[in-house]
Amino acid sequence: MDKEILLRVGARIRDLRKEKGLTQETLGEKGGFHFSYIGQIERGEQNVALLNLARIAEALDVDISQLFTYINLTSNEESQSDIQEIMLMLNQKDPKQIAMAKNVLREIFNNK
């Protein structure tokens, strides 16, 4: 279990980094870390301190909670990836935009 949480958080950081179009080196520079440290975190080799996670989240321009928002990819990885991407997009919007998106989804699914 201990290693699994490191792997999941590391994979989530990697996904967010790639979504932002950042290299390990660029993320390291933004957060004040060596790129090899970022690689160790992403591979689950490094038990990263909470304060360092906060710096990584800031460098990624996401809330620290996003580093722990991952979906267990078991059955349909593509659908799960899409859901995760939608959650990330919504997390970056204001409450009015979220409410609008919710109404759009209701209309789509209630009309079928």
Rank of each mutant, 00 (worst) to 15 (best):
L16R: 10
E19C: 01
Q84L: 15
G21Q: 03
A49F: 06
V62K: 08
E77R: 13
K102Q: 07
P95Y: 03
K102T: 04
G32A: 05
V62W: 07
D61A: 12
E107T: 05
M89N: 12
A49C: 01
T26R: 14
G10T: 10
N103H: 08
N72K: 14
A57T: 09
E29V: 04
K30N: 11
L90Q: 08
Q97K: 12
K93R: 15
K18W: 00
V104K: 02
G31T: 04
L51W: 05
L53D: 10
K96V: 04
Q97Y: 02
K93T: 05
V9T: 15
D63N: 14
L6C: 06
F33R: 07
I56R: 08
F68N: 09
I13T: 14
F33E: 05
G31V: 06
D63G: 11
I71L: 15
A54V: 02
Q97G: 00
Q97D: 15
E58N: 13
M1P: 13
F35Y: 14
G44I: 08
E78M: 08
G39K: 07
Q40F: 11
N76V: 05
I71F: 13
N111Y: 01
L53P: 11
G39F: 04
K93D: 03
E25N: 07
S65E: 14
D15M: 08
L27E: 05
I83R: 08
E29H: 08
K20V: 01
F33A: 03
F33Q: 07
R106P: 00
E29R: 12
V48C: 15
L67S: 05
F68A: 09
T69I: 00
K20R: 15
L27N: 09
A99C: 00
N76T: 10
E58A: 13
S81Y: 10
L51K: 13
L88R: 10
A11Q: 15
L88F: 08
V48T: 15
R55K: 15
N72A: 11
S79M: 10
G21P: 07
N47W: 06
S65P: 01
